[in-house]
Design a protein around this nucleic acid. Structure first.
Lengths: 119, 119
DNA sequence: CACAAAAATAACTGATCCGGCATATGGTTG
DNA sequence: CAACCATATGCCGGATCAGTTATTTTTGTG
């Protein structure tokens, strides 16, 4: 019973930009790291296993896109998730991956059943 | 009260691919057109105002990513949304855009109030 | 002041991607 | 078969982007 969604033209670019931010493996790894809480750059680098310069650039992109906030404290800079929609979007997509994997298993099971029934 | 989301490493690429599909203005326009129901290529071309070859290529990408299904009927090929998560993702992002615009208005209003109060 | 640590930036390379043009494919009709 | 229609594909130029390396900026410390 959900009303059909009609997206205004002016939204397309903004939406695409937000989705594009999530459309990169390294950035997703960074966001996942920040979903556990605030982190400084070194911590994110360690948790993602990516290069420091690379992480720094992606953090800047994400902050400019409004997904992160920056907090400076002495030598370190801490980043934090600022857009609650990120986690919800990731959750949704995660679920669909799990579901598609599940239906894949199901399909294979029925194949297996069919195979075992007529040998 | 939502459990914290921990994304497995093997999911990152799949998630990124799905988000990347949504991270393009033309593809979003195509998806919006298909949210109203099944369409053939010519209809999508007309509704999006993009070139035919371009639309055809994006439709192929979206279908390969599992977001669309293809149905051939005579000369025409009809495409249809096959992944219900697309609409939910778009809805979520749309809402955040509206909200951020609303808070922008609010911010400007308070600026305006402050300005009108001390002339 | 000299030095070290954390983060950002510049410059470069290679890959990817979008869009347009032209052309090919496949199916329909006369 | 020829002409035509809807769609797909190959090729190209330009733009964007990710990752690495090296360097710089900023801040704290002895």
């Amino acid at each position: 019973m959900s009303a059909s969604l009609t997206i205004p033209d002016e939204f397309l670019d903004l939406m695409a930009e937000k989705f594009r931010m999530l459309g990169d493996t390294t950035r997703l790894a960074i966001l996942r790291s920040l979903m556990a809480g605030e982190r400084n750059v070194t911590q994110v680098v360690a948790e993602t296993g990516r290069g420091q310069a690379n992480v720094s650039k992606h953090l800047k992109l994400l902050a400019e896109a409004g997904l992160l906030t920056r907090r400076k404290e002495g030598l370190q800079v801490f980043y934090q998730l600022s857009d609650p929609v990120v986690e919800r979007l990731c959750r949704l997509v995660c679920e669909t991956i799990v579901e598609s994997a599940a239906s894949e298993v199901k399909r294979n099971q029925s194949l297996l059943v069919g195979w075992s029934r007529k040998p």
